Computed example of a mutant assay.
Amino acid sequence: MAELIGVVEALWRYPVKSTGGERLDAVEVDGRGLAGDRLYAVRDGDGKLGSGKNTRRFRRMDGLLRLSSRLGGRLGAPELFDPLGTPVADPDAFLRAYLQRPDVGLAREDEVSHFDQLPVSVLSTATLDWVRRAVPSAVVDERRFRPNILLRTPPGTPPFVEDEWFGRVGRVRGGVALAFIRSSERCAMTGTAQPGLPHAPEILKAVARAHDTRLDALAEVARPGRLRVGDAVALA
């Protein structure tokens, strides 16, 4: 018997990796994830992608989270906004001046994936509310954790309930199905300042103490379709 785990409260897409995203009422979901999510990134002359950390694929570029982006119609080129929310006329020129790097520019995904891990991140309101209680001094909302889907869970749902979904499939009737795999390992980016959210390193410390820096449920797309705010999600 299917188990209702929640209702989609918010949908987020991040057209340019590591910048602020756009909140949607509905979105197509395909094998890659939410259509247009992380489709673009800031790429440097070495081919590394702008991020909040340094890895084999990524290069830390401080300040990206203060920017935001949205996609044009039919997944056209993204529109980039400066820290005050003003549209940028020439994204490449702006990024070079803003980051003080002459070798950067916007790049569409090719053979190198723009995703840190898996394509879809789902966060429960039960876990988000726990963070608010654990760190009352911080301003907390879902943007700290950059989920694609914020799921409104039933009253009394325990925090970190996402762990119970791993190995199962969340389904929307007649629509999308997501195969839950594991959780994200969080980094200092959770406490990084962004518009409306001041610097708050205590958030990562609280998550590390309580849950080994892990938070959310990462998923692959088991069945594509259209996803809408208000859709009920049940575990198969």
Rank of each mutant, 00 (worst) to 15 (best):
A77R: 03
D30G: 15
A206I: 10
V161D: 01
L4F: 08
R226W: 13
E9A: 09
E202G: 07
T127I: 02
R173M: 01
E220W: 11
P15E: 07
P102R: 04
A236E: 15
G33R: 00
T127L: 06
I149T: 06
R228M: 12
A107G: 03
G36D: 08
V139G: 04
L204I: 15
P195F: 05
T157G: 09
A206V: 04
G174A: 02
L99I: 12
V104R: 08
G6Y: 08
P87H: 03
V135I: 15
R171S: 01
E22T: 13
V7G: 01
E202Y: 14
P15G: 00
P78V: 00
V169T: 08
R173I: 01
P102S: 11
P158C: 02
L4R: 03
A210N: 10
D103R: 02
A2F: 00
M189T: 13
G156D: 06
A138N: 15
T127Y: 02
S183I: 05
H211V: 02
A208C: 05
K53P: 01
A89S: 15
V172Y: 04
D82C: 11
G230V: 07
K48S: 01
P87D: 10
T192N: 10
S184V: 15
G170A: 03
P195T: 03
S68T: 13
Y14H: 12
M189Y: 04
S51D: 13
D110T: 09
P158T: 05
T213L: 14
E22M: 12
L204Y: 14
G72Y: 04
R66D: 12
P155K: 12
T213H: 15
L39N: 10
R96P: 09
P154N: 06
P195A: 05
A97V: 09
A126S: 15
F58Q: 07
K53Q: 13
A234C: 02
L80K: 03
R226N: 11
F115P: 01
D231V: 05
G167I: 01
G6I: 06
V29Q: 10
L227C: 10
